[in-house]
Design a binder for these strands. Structure first.
Lengths: 185, 185
DNA sequence: CCTCTCATGTAAGACGTTACATGATTCA
DNA sequence: TGAATCATGTAACGTCTTACATGAGAGG
């Protein structure tokens, strides 16, 4: 039920339409949560049915795009949000990464291929880190919590990259030792 | 489909029954993936149907507990696993935490309650870090990849805690500034 | 005696992803 | 002319969690 409340949270800033909500969620906490239209439109519908948000359809005669629907938070919605924000969060962090799942079993695969995949991953996370840092520099006057979340994304990214690079070195060293042992057999 | 392959991966070490597989997954990569019986037993069934694993039921006359089922990996299973481990991983990391989702919106809630929740979280992650470090010290002769994954868990935990503590200080400082501004109005 | 650990399993529901359909405007 | 962006929505499918049912032995 967290996405419903994230929508209510965003609507505190200003009324938005579905497309913008998705874009905002991705920008503000894309590394804490992911979202897609299959979630946002049905959620907007049910929030509307429950009276937590209200909608006005723009009648845009001759203007760009299909008819937009502007959603605003209602008093009922604000109250529901306040209740939610006060409650203790119900679960702790999960970090899911198919690469890490494979990583655990690299010992059962081809060693060269494993190092190759680690290098791919290092490249990927280096790019991600660069783009996160750039985005962060561009954004000004961020609300303190939003800013802190962005900084967290960058710091965890750095910690992860540092670990991955060290892991790569250790795995290569380990492979060299293993082949030396074979040489002296 | 990652859990199916994790099961195949674990069965490379030795035959296991369902209960043990869950325990091993939690121990070896509990911070990379979570699992429960609702996933593991149905998966064992389908892996068996597809011939990727084989099963022998223990007949334990007068022994403890219900009948155990020992699962082993088959040649077909090894081949399927090898194919999987070589393939590039299909997605990148997602970090999901209901606390962080709330954190973004703490500006719309009560400030004291927010700091309280941050303190709870600091306590929680400090405990988690301590127990991870203790577990790690106890374990000896870990396979290199398994050891590295454990170290990653500890390092990311440390980075996260450092961030959270700094975030707390900044939020408190921000609140003090805000109230000073009110004083001089 | 009671709780913990070991042990297997199912059903329902919540949640999330992917693919598809539709269509206008803007910019190169 | 074609690609990118803005914009809304649904259906099918996968995955994950939660709750439940069952039951024995070990240790305090």
């Amino acid at each position: 039920m967290a996405i419903r409340h994230a929508i209510l949270g965003l609507l505190h800033y200003r009324p938005m339409h579905g497309y913008k909500i998705k874009a905002q969620i991705e920008q503000n906490f894309g590394h804490v949560w992911s979202i897609n239209y299959g979630q946002i439109y049905p959620n907007l519908k049910s929030l509307l049915d429950e009276g937590l948000i209200s909608m006005t359809e723009e009648n845009r005669v001759g203007m760009r795009g299909p008819s937009r629907k502007l959603y605003s938070i209602t008093d009922k919605g604000r109250k529901a949000f306040s209740r939610w924000i006060m409650e203790p969060p119900d679960k702790n962090m999960t970090l899911r990464d198919p690469f890490l799942m494979k990583f655990v079993f690299f010992g059962f695969g081809d060693r060269r291929r494993a190092v190759e995949m680690i290098d791919d991953q290092i490249r990927l996370y280096t790019e991600q880190l660069t783009s996160r840092k750039e985005k962060f520099k561009k954004l000004k006057n961020l609300e303190i919590h939003v800013r802190l979340i962005s900084e967290m994304g960058i710091e965890l990214n750095e910690a992860f990259l540092a670990w991955l690079k060290r892991a790569r070195e250790e795995i290569v060293r380990d492979a060299v030792n293993a082949s030396n042992e074979v040489d002296h057999e």
